[in-house]
Design a protein around this nucleic acid. Structure first.
Lengths: 191, 191
DNA sequence: AAATTGACTGATTTAGTATTTCGGTCAGTT
DNA sequence: AACTGACCGAAATACTAAATCAGTCAATTT
């Protein structure tokens, strides 16, 4: 189209600004300037700053999902697929500027809107894993269980091992984490 | 003894004040007044406010341990004992004024000293569970595994289920949590 | 007339600073 | 020798003036 797609410009500017400065430190004037757009124009597309932010988070969720889907292998085992999802999600979190900044803002300032956004991201990952787990149940690969609780527990366990454990202990490498996952969740501890 | 045990008075006053007001809002003047003691006297027993606090936390750890030990049953299975420990710890956290207050202060204000104290409490629980798990391994009840990582994972999983899960879902009752524990950690998901 | 703009507004944040509080000390008291 | 509480400087807090910001809307552009 001949005329510029202002909405797209705004979204790109907002994504950039949220990535660089986080939610709080991003101003609507800043976004307008970055987008080469009058501030009022933003408000023709988004009712509030929070709504604009939610749009960015929604596309972040899509990005994570695409990233994860690309690595999925339908012929692989449940262990492999679940582990792949978790590794990819973790890598994404550690490499993408926006997530890095938001995790930081959540930790250091506890910005409510950011806390909620990160919960939404987490919830979306759980929902995605839920589907994988349901498939594994249907295929008879794993026992019948609540797929949502299971996905939730897997995510929490993974992040416990890669994030919390490393606060007081030498980090576990990918191989070890995969082994632990297999032992605890799949094979079980019982002899 | 004829003379009052001032150290004991101070410790009791401090425990009371930390329970009522948390770490930050407790002042040394306050503790001195509660203990009916000159402020200087506190400093003959404790070098700093933090050292006094650490003493209280140390005895909190002992209290939790006693509480938990009372419920242990050497003839019971690993599942029963581990679950008992976790339930007791959780109940303790929810009913004792000091832990309630400190969890609140950690969450709402992020007081560094309180964060560190709670980590010490958690670490002590892990160490205690580690012993139980080592026994279970020795008895051949469960597979060989790193007892510390295992204890850590169990604690994290339990609190994920009873604390984090309930933020967005209807709470799981004790029975369900016990079942989930058994399924995920002991029996394993594999068919 | 539809789309866009940026000056404007009032509520909120921040910066600056005066005041109070608090952890820790130590000279004096018991 | 044990204990005390007035005292100190650093740190937190309360206060307030100034700046900032989300959101609006009358004026301008297309």
């Amino acid at each position: 189209m001949a005329i510029v797609d202002r909405k797209k410009l705004i979204i790109e500017a907002a994504a950039k600004s949220f990535s660089l400065y986080g939610y709080k430190a991003t101003t609507m004037d800043q976004v307008a300037k970055l987008a080469n757009v009058g501030k009022g124009t933003i408000y023709t597309f988004f009712k509030t700053k929070e709504e604009l932010f939610d749009e960015i988070i929604t596309s972040l969720i899509v990005d994570i999902r695409l990233e994860v889907e690309a690595a999925m292998d339908d012929s692989a085992s449940i262990l492999e697929n679940v582990h792949t999802v978790l590794v990819r999600v973790h890598e994404f979190r550690e490499t993408h500027q926006l997530t890095i900044k938001l995790i930081q803002e959540e930790r250091d300032m506890g910005t409510q809107i950011v806390v909620e956004a990160m919960q939404r991201v987490e919830e979306s990952i759980v929902q995605y894993m839920k589907v994988i787990i349901q498939k594994a149940i249907d295929k008879g690969e794993i026992k019948a269980c609540d797929p949502e609780v299971t996905a939730f527990v897997m995510l929490k366990m993974y992040f416990s091992l890669v994030v919390d454990w490393q606060r007081n202990h030498p980090p576990l490498d990918k191989e070890e984490i995969s082994k632990l996952f297999e032992l605890y969740l799949l094979k079980g501890l019982l002899t």
